[in-house]
Design a protein around this nucleic acid. Structure first.
Lengths: 222, 222
DNA sequence: GTGTATATCTCGGGG
DNA sequence: CCCCGAGGTATACAC
């Protein structure tokens, strides 16, 4: 990784046009070739960047980064204040726990927690327009589509609505009545709840830690 | 901005749990206090981070970053390979051109380009579920809701559908007939076009550069 | 490669 | 402050 602190101005032409006036910034060049220009604030997002794959050409006072998509980043350097390089090696990578995939896993194993008598039919049930997180049957044998999110927002309700529209055209699923929908999340936003209710979709707030407690602790990542 | 290259392991507890095994990485601490841990690859996104506002406590071999939301980032440092600080000063900030806001501005001034005889009623027309980009009237006096996107995808059609559903409940708007919808974008994805057509929503591909040409060049950002 | 869904999304605007 | 929408979203994964 190369770290350059320099007074520079930057121009990007690609998906939009953007310009950074002359100022002191950090230019980070990673081993995979990607370039990021950071200011001394503003979370982790750089002001400007160019991801790999790309080509960096260093001329006197001007770096030009181009990529195969025709995007171009030009860094005009007035003064270099520091320039260092470090060999970091490959990273073993991040281990995560608590994201949607895990929540889905836990709910699949405990879908009776959503509703008494509920039984799992299939996880990631394929439809033409995407996978339904959980397809279940309720105590009366009716099909139930469950959409799982960490945070329930409007998009998730739209997604489930599209799935239900499609699933309800399948005679095999609607034999015992229309397919029902449940929007399950750790937290459900007010607007999402309103939209769901308006569309006859039930909302279920699930407790991740409680579900995990039901699960065998040895399954945890760490 | 402080840049530390070190062998470290990292644990994050907050919106999820995450762990990084011991390896050499860059730790970036910005003036606003935010901390980011970068590997030597993987675009501009850090492996782990903690945004401002937060509190960084440096003990021997262990940095602990906590924030008011109860999130916690612990960096265990085995060996420091480099530690430097630079005063970058405040950044003048990024100037952008070509984003949705600008496209909306141009279309508002030239909505007759969408359809002959079309007149602008209001930009960002408020509804209970969000703002309609452009509310217009066509040559026959019928209300038209326009949703503007850089790239027309399914989400935009869903959004416009929600608005139309609501607008069509307003007697003041439907006096001359049902409110029509137009999905306007520089590029419209096939699936979005299919969905729009299915719902009676028209699609309009707009040429950003041509629109800008109609506009006074002195209005351009740079 | 396109299409779809997720994200500790980030970031900015408005109530 | 939260809510909501846009993003050069980035990223992973299925088809």
């Amino acid at each position: 990784m190369r770290l350059v602190v320099a007074r520079c101005s930057v121009d990007y032409e690609g998906r939009l046009s953007a310009h950074l006036p002359m100022a002191t910034r950090l230019i980070m060049v990673k081993a995979d070739g990607c370039v990021a220009i950071h200011a001394d604030g503003g979370a982790y997002k750089p002001l400007n960047w160019m991801n790999a794959p790309n080509r960096l050409v260093e001329a006197a006072g001007e770096w030009t980064v181009t990529n195969p998509k025709g995007e171009r980043l030009v860094i005009t350097i007035e003064e270099v204040l520091s320039d260092s390089a470090h060999d970091l090696g490959a990273d073993p990578g991040l281990q995560k726990d608590g994201v949607e995939a895990h929540l889905q896993e836990l709910l699949a194993a405990a879908c009776h927690e959503l509703e008494a008598g509920m039984v799992l039919v299939r996880r990631e049930h394929r439809t033409e327009i995407g996978p339904v997180d959980l397809l279940c049957r309720d105590a009366e044998g009716r099909a139930v589509a469950v959409e799982i999110k960490r945070r329930g927002e409007i998009d998730g309700v739209e997604q489930l609505t599209r799935y239900l529209e499609l699933l309800n055209r399948d005679p095999a699923l609607t034999r015992k009545g229309a397919v029902r929908g449940i929007s399950a999340a750790q937290e459900i936003k007010p607007q999402a709840r309103v939209l769901a209710t308006d569309r006859g979709i039930a909302c279920a707030v699930v407790d991740y830690d409680a579900l995990r407690g039901l699960d065998d602790p040895s399954h945890r990542l760490f």
